[in-house]
């Protein structure tokens, strides 16, 4: 009996038609997939009120597929949460809502903009990046819903501080990560015990690389927002990076606006996410490009991470995802 039969057998089942992939998974992706499923199931068993962060980006798209593999034909035993910076690419939000609808799951959206308008967050510049400020809204949301575990799609290959973070990452009641006092993580025996007010961040795809993510997306035939593919866009060059020209990010005086074929490798706050020059128009072409990539993901695309080598660690200590 195939999965499709289960869906029919369920009274309430109206999930997106799941298209099984074309071929069996490669050995190492199968290992990674199974590990992630195991981690998700352990978390659901050992915590009371988990949630999954879904931004519409490629890593969280993979996370949703893994949740399907872990829990279907049941509904996901957790809601999806998006911390909205309001600095979005419209294509990503459109995709986010469509995907949630297809999956027939619950999405909670909390906005950084709300916190700015209510004075909880004070900006130094009206158009500044809101990546840092997500922390406030994220912690407010955790409090509001009393979440004790949050699934995130972070990977250890993204950045140096992440390379040391556990799969189950403990946060104190302020949401802070203490890198020097992490719980040892042995075999697959995860310890998710916490005190009231604390929570754990859970990273099921810790051991995946950017290439693994794209190969998995290709294999599973997953849809991703269109801005991941090559498209013509008005950009300016700034400090060796391509900066998209938008209402929020107008060119500075003296900068020359040019049209270029680009794609995004991450989708975040529009004011600090830079595309790379690319002609890759399909997932297979992105896989190919990633195989020969010359720049790590964050270095190439995040304008705010460049400030200092230690900037990611600083933010993580403060509760950033």
């Amino acid at each position: 009996m195939k999965f499709a039969d289960f869906t029919q057998a369920r009274e309430t089942g109206k999930y997106a038609a799941y298209k099984p992939p074309r071929a069996p998974l490669s050995k190492h992706l199968r290992w990674l997939e199974s590990e992630a499923i195991h981690i998700m199931r352990e978390t659901v068993a050992e915590t009371k009120n988990p949630a999954l962060l879904f931004s519409g980006g490629k890593d969280s798209i993979v996370m949703l597929r893994l949740a399907e593999k872990a829990f279907r034909p049941d509904k996901f035993p957790f809601p999806l949460v998006h911390i909205d910076t309001e600095h979005n690419f419209p294509e990503v939000i459109e995709f986010r809502d469509r995907r949630v609808k297809e999956l027939d799951e619950r999405l909670i959206v909390r906005s950084v903009g709300e916190a700015i308008r209510s004075g909880r967050i004070v900006l130094r510049r009206a158009d500044e990046s809101r990546n840092v400020h997500q922390t406030v809204t994220l912690l407010d949301t955790i409090k509001e819903f009393e979440f004790d575990a949050l699934f995130g799609g972070a990977r250890r290959d993204e950045e140096k501080a992440r390379a040391k973070e556990r799969i189950i990452s403990h946060r104190d009641e302020w949401g802070q990560w203490d890198p020097k006092n992490q719980r040892p993580e042995l075999w697959s025996l995860y310890n998710m015990r916490i005190h009231p007010g604390e929570h754990v961040r859970v990273f099921p795809i810790s051991n995946w690389t950017e290439l693994d993510v794209w190969q998995y997306i290709a294999h599973e035939n997953l849809e991703v927002p269109s801005i991941y593919f090559s498209h013509e866009r008005e950009i300016v060059e700034r400090k060796g990076l391509l900066v998209p020209v938008t209402d929020l990010t107008p060119p500075k005086s003296g900068e020359i606006v040019v049209k270029k074929a680009v794609r995004f490798r991450t989708v975040g706050d529009i004011t600090c996410t830079a595309p790379v020059a690319s002609d890759a128009a399909t997932v297979d072409e992105i896989v190919e490009e990633t195989l020969i990539a010359r720049l790590t993901e964050r270095g190439a695309t995040r304008l705010d991470d460049q400030t200092s080598d230690a900037s990611m660690e600083m933010r993580k200590k403060e509760g950033y995802f």
Partner: peptide, 19 residues
């Protein structure tokens, strides 16, 4: 060398995973 404290002391103090 991943973490600030380590960079200051010049030694590795935790498990870091590399791929």
């Amino acid at each position: 060398d991943g973490l600030t404290a380590e960079r200051e002391q010049g030694i590795t103090i935790d498990v870091a995973y590399r791929y």
